[in-house]
Write a protein that binds this DNA or RNA. Structure first.
Lengths: 257, 257
DNA sequence: AAGTGGTCTAGACCACAAA
DNA sequence: TTGTGGTCTAGACCACTTG
């Protein structure tokens, strides 16, 4: 019995406080992917509360995908996925291979430079910071599939200084070197400019899909990437179902085309 | 004291079973938006379990956005949002008004017809069903902003038979007449064909962003819509943050541009 | 004022996977 | 075998909001 509900200082429910505490340690990179977080009974002791309370807190992390729980083993920081299931923006290599096509990659240029504060896209990265600029090209069955222009903040990811992107696409490299993060995507249609058209073997003015993505870690911008696809080569898919609760009726067969 | 964990028949945890039960009633339209669902103590009696169990089940629905809970009032089926926060595809009227522009709407045509099984986009709707086809145009400050071609399955939404879309955009009408649903979006870039170019006051061949959306209710396709935007008029935004737990560090100022 | 949902506890049994 | 997380209970106090 009892349980006078020790109302925490911040007027925030205790289990919310615990969730936020743990999430902060994960997002900051303090607890890297794969690391085991404390057992529930340890968190009970740390926070001085019942097991149901810490359990609720950690289950919220699991529902958000930040951790994975395994019986008898413990709870571990999850490896970041490229995307949630809602907006599928796969790694291009996996996407092309999944189509049964041969994937090709070509580095076009790689250089250090300073940000151009005049460009609004770049302004979201740390102002006046040094960045690594990588321009590359993805091929499917030998045909240009996408051009990628990427900036990596060297302040946020100093390991990139010594990275070599001649063989490894920068997206794949970052997946292994940047912990959990927030991201924003912007998707637009544009007419190919002369340079892009040349790189994609298109006529200038032809429509292209442009995907821009900013990625932050702990509030600091890590990378900005702009990928340009020929209009007929790529289509983004986003599924949305409220609450993934098993529905006996079965989902529609959403696989044609 | 007791609590032998009455393992349910389906080998599914009781709170999961309850969540699925309630979600099914909501998605089927059995409980329409705004309807109050049973109080927790009523669910306790129905399922013969402790309050914590039904509470966990209903809180899962709330987390998924299917219901809204108000103290002292009860728990109510939420009105479907156009989109989750992850992929923001707002109603065009709200989007344009939000920019401080004048919104305009024009119906181009409205007619009943049968599905054309040859078109793969349409094939996802119930085969051989009768549909209402609505073509319309959205304007911002008097300039064409988007053309919309929509099919509404009359088998799934018979009320549409008597709807009048001369003044009301079909999207807004559907929001009030179709309950919770699943959706899929496909986003692509295309060159404007002659008809679309004329309707958007563009030169043929100019790039456009095309958004296609299929919506299902209880496994049955309700509507398909194809919206075409001039490339410079529209940009889709998708944010992704793992778990929206308050992070004391604060999110980056993601509002420039 | 009354009743809802929000939270917390102390204890218990269980399934399961790792050691 | 052991200990983790998964689940459930019976009871309690509280905040908030609505009638």
């Amino acid at each position: 019995m009892t349980g006078p509900v020790a109302r925490a200082a911040g007027s925030l429910a205790l289990h919310h406080r615990i969730t936020a505490d743990l999430a902060a340690r994960i997002r900051s990179g303090d607890w890297p992917p794969g690391r085991r977080i404390p057992y529930e009974h340890e968190l009970m002791a740390s926070y001085g509360c019942a097991r149901a309370t810490v359990s609720k807190a950690v289950q919220a992390l699991a529902a958000a995908g930040l951790v994975e729980r395994r019986r008898r083993a413990g709870t571990f920081v999850a490896r970041p996925r490229v995307q949630s299931a809602v907006l599928e923006i796969p790694e291009l290599q996996a996407e092309i291979s999944g189509r049964g096509q041969a994937y090709g990659y070509e580095l076009i240029s790689q250089q250090r430079r300073r940000l151009a504060p005049g460009r609004p896209d770049e302004a979201r990265l740390r102002p006046a910071g040094a960045v690594l600029e990588v321009v590359c090209r993805h091929l499917a069955n030998g045909a240009p599939f996408a051009v990628e222009e990427r900036l990596i903040s060297l302040a946020a990811a100093p390991e990139a200084r010594s990275a070599d992107f001649r063989l490894t696409p920068p997206g794949a490299w970052l997946l292994d070197h940047v912990a959990w993060s927030e991201a924003e995507h912007r998707i637009a249609a544009v007419a190919a400019d002369d340079l892009t058209a040349m790189r994609l073997s298109l006529d200038p003015g032809r429509p292209c899909l442009v995907l821009r993505r900013w990625t932050w870690r702990a509030g600091e911008a890590v990378t900005f990437v702009r990928q340009t696809f020929p209009a007929d080569a790529f289509e983004l898919v986003a599924r949305f179902a409220p609450g993934g609760f098993s529905q006996a009726s079965g989902l529609p067969a959403v696989r044609p085309d």
